[in-house]
Amino acid sequence: MTSAVVRELSAELRGFREVQTLAYACAEAVAAQLKPGVTEREAARMQREWLRERGVRDWFHLPFAWFGDRTAFVNFRIPLQFFPTNRKLEAGMPFILDMAPVHKGFTADIGYSGCLGLNPVHDKLLADLEAHRELILREVRERRTLREIYEDVDRLMVRQGYANRHRAYPFGVIAHKVDRVRERRINPTLFGFGTQSLKGLASDAVHGHRDGWSPLWSPYKFSDHPPRPGLWAVEPHLGFRGTGAKFEEILVVTDSTDPEESAFWLDDDLPHVRRWAEGI
């Protein structure tokens, strides 16, 4: 894609940016309503209803909510454990809201970390995520292979003293591709994932398999290729002794030769980025 194409695409990018903004607005609205005693299920329902009221009908995946040591996926063995439980929020507990709404055919996938009251460990984790956002963008622009970038992120986490918790996600992904989704009247979900989005991911996986790339950005051999143009929902997830923190947002990768245009974050006006800018 040349820069002309990027400009041409910008209408489309605007669509993605709008839904990402909407999703983060939802996360902030729900986070503001969280109080001691609220369960993960209730928090997930609050996100679903908030977005439904604003026109979201389809999902890449249904909203998740993790509280306490579940933010670091402590003792997670099977994927079913990702689903919201009746764990109640308590003072000082960290929480993560993760949702992927589809709005007007555009997909967003975001992760929002917060904590109820004071939690210095959580603050530290969140502050240390900044280095990961910079590292990922820099190395994508350098066109390093996704597997190498994954390993570099891993090394940075180890240096910081943290555990890599995105390893717990299906296929251990740090990111996955997102795309436009056709709007339908009925939007069923399968294990929390929208069938339309799954279909898109599966078709990418099939095509990618032929051409030697994968829509899943993992530590495995199938990610041993340079970044593929498109939209990637990137979600580095740090864990430290029962406290976890992540962000998730869309990285735009193009085939421009200009490094600045070859990859950029879809939006820099996000809660975690603002937080770093304010130096908290």
Binding site: P120, V121, K124, R159, G161, F240, R241
Partner: peptide
């Protein structure tokens, strides 16, 4: 650097 990091994090927990 890494020793300092360990000490810093140790105090947090």
């Amino acid at each position: 650097e890494s020793a300092a990091r360990t000490a810093e994090m140790a105090q947090l927990i």
